[in-house]
């Protein structure tokens, strides 16, 4: 069994501009999705991220008080899952409720270094 990191980018803007009811529905959808993943023991962990952040460049010398990417590119959260292959991980990621809010996902396998 391999582990995959799913990076969730974008989608915040549309989410924050939607009605309270839609927001609640969205949280329910997340509950449903993650609940299924937890039940299947696919889920390892995952958290949403704040929009604020800091970026260090130039060997740590330059500090910018915002995330590396912004707007549609900003990383808004991550999920860590278990799957047998990239294909299966992709299949799982396709169910992400945040697509409704125009997010994009990047799936990366955790790399064993030795």
């Amino acid at each position: 069994m391999k582990e995959f990191l799913i990076l969730i980018r974008g989608g915040q803007e549309k989410y924050q501009n939607s009605a309270l009811k839609e927001m609640q529905k969205h949280m329910e959808d997340w509950q449903q999705w993650m609940g299924t993943l937890a039940k299947e023991e696919t889920l390892v962990g995952g958290q949403p991220l704040m929009n604020e952040g800091a970026t260090l460049t130039e060997g740590g010398k330059k500090i910018t008080d915002r995330p590396f990417a912004e707007g549609k590119e900003i990383v808004g959260g991550y999920l860590l899952i278990k799957a047998d292959s990239m294909d299966l991980a992709t299949k799982i990621a396709k169910e992400c409720p945040s697509f409704e809010f125009d997010c994009s996902l990047e799936i990366r396998e955790i790399s064993p270094l030795v």
């Binding site: 329910e28 997340w30 509950q31 993650m34 937890a38 039940k39 889920l43 995952g46 949403p48």
Partner: peptide, 19 residues
Amino acid sequence: DPERKLLISEYTLATTMDN
């Protein structure tokens, strides 16, 4: 515990708690 797993993620903490 499967019932508590979703309490750890902020994605699902509030909804799980409300349930």
